[in-house]
Nucleic acid binder design. Structure first.
Lengths: 160, 160
DNA sequence: TATTGTTATACTCTATAACTATA
DNA sequence: TATAGTTATAGAGTATAACAATA
């Protein structure tokens, strides 16, 4: 099957923004899930890689350091994330989810997933498998540049 | 192959925002392609459905009427879009691409596509086919709510 | 002197509310 | 009175520049 990279790019460019806007609008609309997409991604990343530094986080999420700092500020203020000075190098900071953060992530994830799942339920198993496979193909291509080999946290303190 | 709607939703939620951020960052970074994602989508929609009203456009793009109005304002000021009072109903407005708008769209598309294509080139034909197929599956699910049956324009004036 | 993160400041995008013009 | 669109205003999010603290 001949599918050029350009055809693929065009398809991605056509569809991804529409999907994204649906996700964003849905997150904004849902009351009690008071979290936006970058915040959601931040919680998700910290869930996977507890104890990373601010720089690592910013690199992955794709924000500048000041923006990331501000975003984290908000999450710390809401006690969803803990931020501690790293004892080994006092310039660095160690970020982790609190219990509340985990709960908030689970709730957002559940809600947004449920919303998407509702729409995806219209498809056949085979079609869904195709989508999952496509996501798995896209993932490394668009994440690799940022994903850090995130050393597991020296400690997963939970200041909830 | 058993793939639940929820598994699929999770995959989408994990990957789509990362892809989207890459696209957005790329568009912002690229000098001479002075256009953001909603503007890009607006031009693309007007290219397909010339002569639509502001409301139809806002509905599709997923912005409120005032936001859409402002966005279009900018495009009109830059002579990428023409905006004319519709003679049949003087409250309505008729939007279309100008020649400059078409050129700008083509340029943005070409650049961003090329950028994405560069990354997608690493995949096999089969893998790319999978991605295209997945996009075709997602498209109606996330676009249908908004896509208007956009009456073709009564006139495709080009005030370039 | 270089690195990690924060603070100060400004700009863009988007929303809600109030308004104008037309039907 | 209802509809299409615009203007006024405000808030969120992000960036760049300047700064502070530590290495």
């Amino acid at each position: 099957m001949r599918v050029s990279a350009q055809d693929t790019a065009q398809a991605v460019l056509d569809v991804v923004p529409a999907v994204m806007r649906t996700i964003r609008t849905e997150m904004r609309t849902h009351r009690g899930c008071d979290i936006n997409v970058p915040q959601f991604r931040t919680l998700g990343y910290l869930n996977r890689y507890s104890g990373v530094s601010l720089s690592q986080l910013a690199e992955h999420i794709g924000l500048t350091l000041p923006s990331m700092s501000k975003l984290v500020d908000g999450l710390v203020a809401r006690k969803l994330v803990s931020r501690q000075v790293y004892t080994g190098d006092r310039r660095r900071v160690t970020l982790a989810l609190t219990a509340r953060g985990r709960a908030s992530l689970a709730s957002s994830l559940e809600y947004t997933e449920a919303y998407l799942a509702e729409r995806l339920a219209a498809l056949s198993d085979t079609d869904r498998a195709t989508i999952v496979q496509a996501m798995q193909l896209l993932d490394p291509i668009f994440r690799s540049e940022r994903e850090v080999e995130a050393k597991p946290a020296p400690q997963t303190n939970d200041a909830s």
